[in-house]
Amino acid sequence: MRIAMVTDAWSPQRNGVVRVLTALTATLEAMGHEIGIFEPGAFPNIPCPSYPEIPLALFPATRLAAMLDAFAPDAVHLATEGPLGWAGRSWCLERSLPFTTAYHTKFPDYVTARTGLPLDWSYALIRYFHQPAAATLCPSPSVYRELRERDFTGAVEWSHGVDTDAFRPRGKGMFDLPRPVFLYVGRVAVEKNLPAFLDLDLPGSKLVVGDGPARAVLMKRYPDVHFRIVNGDDELSRAYSDGDVFVFPSRTDTFGLVMLEALACGVPVAGFPVTGPRDVVGDAPVGVLSEDLAAAARAALELSPEICRAHATRFSWSTVAREFLGHLRPFGDCGTKSPHVVQAS
C-alpha cells in the first residue's frame, strides 16, 4: 500500500514524535508498504517561534498538493497539526478523500501555557482540525479518554513501542558521577516541567541528557546539575543505562516514549500520576508514581532492573504498525509495493 505520511515533525528534529514516526515508517517499510514522507525540509520554512530548531513550512498548500498528486497514495495519514497537517487536510477534503490523524502532542496545553489563551479555545481549534478524520490515533488509553471527554468523536486507541535491541542494559559509568544518578532524557523545554525534578533534594547526582530552548537558562539556574548531549541510539542507550532512576517530571506528555526506552535499559521510572506515566508504568513494579516526586525517586531505587527490562519488551513496534494499518482508511485499490520510503522533495 502507498501511504502518504504528512508531518511537521521529522529529522533532524529530536523529539518523541520524530522517534515514533521514524520507527513506524521503518516497520511499515519492512512489512512491504511504500511510504511517502512529506515534511518541512521539502518546503521553504521558517523557525518556529520559541523553538528555532523546529522548522515550519511556509504556505505549503500548493506544493504539497502537487507532491501528493504525483505520489498518488492509497491512504493519507496526517501526523501533526502544523502547517503541513492543515495543508494535507485541505487536500483530502477538496477531493473528498478519507484520512487519519494522530494526537501526539498536547498542543492546547502548550498554546495556553505560552499565550494565556483559554484552554477551551485551544481545544476547540484542535478538535476542528481532527473532526473530519476517519480516525484520530491516541498514543495512550489516558489520552483516548481525555479526547473522548472533549468530544473528539473519532478518537481511537493506538499503542507505542520501543526498540529493545537498540535500548538495552549497557552497564554503569558512562558519565562517572556520584551515585545514585537520577536521570532525565529528552527535550529541555518549559513544558517538560524540569524544575519539578531539578529542585528536588536528592542524594547523589542529577543528570539531564538532551537539548532544547530552556537548556541555557536551566544550566545557569542549576549549576550543580550535570547537563550532557549524546548522539545516536548507541550513546543514548549507554546514557540511559548509566542512570539509577529515570525521573519524568512532565505533566503534559501524551505518552512519554523516553520512559519506555529507560525501562528497556533496566532503569526504573519516577513520575507524577498523570497521563503518560500512568500508561507506561501503571501498576507494574517498574516505577513509582506520586505527587511527592522526591519520595517517588527514592523509592524507585529499590526496583528490579530485570523486571523493568521485561516490562519494556511487551511494547512492540510490529504491534504499533499493525494497529496503525488497521486504523487507516484506504481510498483506492491497495496493492503491496516493494519496500521503499519515498522522501518528498
Rank of each mutant, 00 (worst) to 15 (best):
A135G: 12
P203Q: 02
T275I: 10
K337F: 08
V18C: 06
G276N: 10
D233G: 05
R238W: 02
D176C: 09
A296C: 12
K220I: 00
L64F: 11
W158Y: 05
V269A: 05
V111S: 01
V185F: 03
V245S: 06
P285K: 10
D74P: 03
V143K: 04
G232C: 12
P98W: 10
T7F: 06
S338I: 09
H311M: 08
V76S: 02
I54K: 02
A30H: 09
S290C: 10
G171Q: 11
G171N: 13
M219A: 13
P118W: 12
T164N: 13
T313F: 00
Y110I: 15
T100A: 08
F99M: 09
I229Y: 00
G210I: 03
G266F: 04
E302L: 13
S96V: 10
M219H: 01
P47D: 04
H226E: 12
L137Y: 05
D201H: 07
T112P: 01
P132M: 10
F167S: 11
T100P: 07
W317N: 07
P132V: 10
E306S: 14
L68D: 10
E157C: 12
D233A: 15
H33R: 06
T336G: 01
N193K: 06
D253L: 08
S241R: 06
A310E: 14
T252N: 06
I46H: 02
D69Q: 13
L58N: 00
A30S: 15
L58Y: 05
R19I: 01
R95G: 07
P60L: 07
R187I: 00
V320F: 07
A299P: 02
V286F: 11
G161K: 09
D176A: 15
D165F: 08
K172C: 01
L202Y: 02
G243N: 03
E29W: 08
E34C: 14
L64V: 10
G282W: 02
E149F: 01
R114E: 14
D151M: 11
R309D: 08
A9H: 14
C138D: 09
A300F: 12
C308Y: 11
A196H: 08
L183I: 01
L28N: 11
A284P: 04
T115M: 08
L301W: 03
Y222W: 06
D292I: 10
R322V: 11
E191F: 02
F129P: 04
A4Q: 09
F43E: 05
A214K: 06
T25V: 15
E146T: 14
T252S: 14
G32E: 09
G154H: 14
D201P: 00
R314V: 00
L125N: 05
P249G: 09
G212C: 03
H327V: 03
S205E: 01
L303D: 07
C334T: 12
G154C: 15
F182S: 01
V217D: 14
L202C: 07
S318V: 12
R150T: 10
S122T: 15
R168D: 13
G88C: 05
A295I: 03
F331K: 09
L56R: 05
G32W: 09
L263M: 08
D244W: 04
T254I: 04
D165E: 15
M174Q: 13
E157I: 13
T336D: 00
P223I: 08
W86A: 11
F167R: 08
T252M: 12
R322F: 03
R179C: 00
D163V: 12
R168S: 15
G210R: 04
P44V: 02
G326F: 04
K337I: 02
E323Q: 15
R168G: 11
V208Q: 02
D253Y: 06
G32D: 10
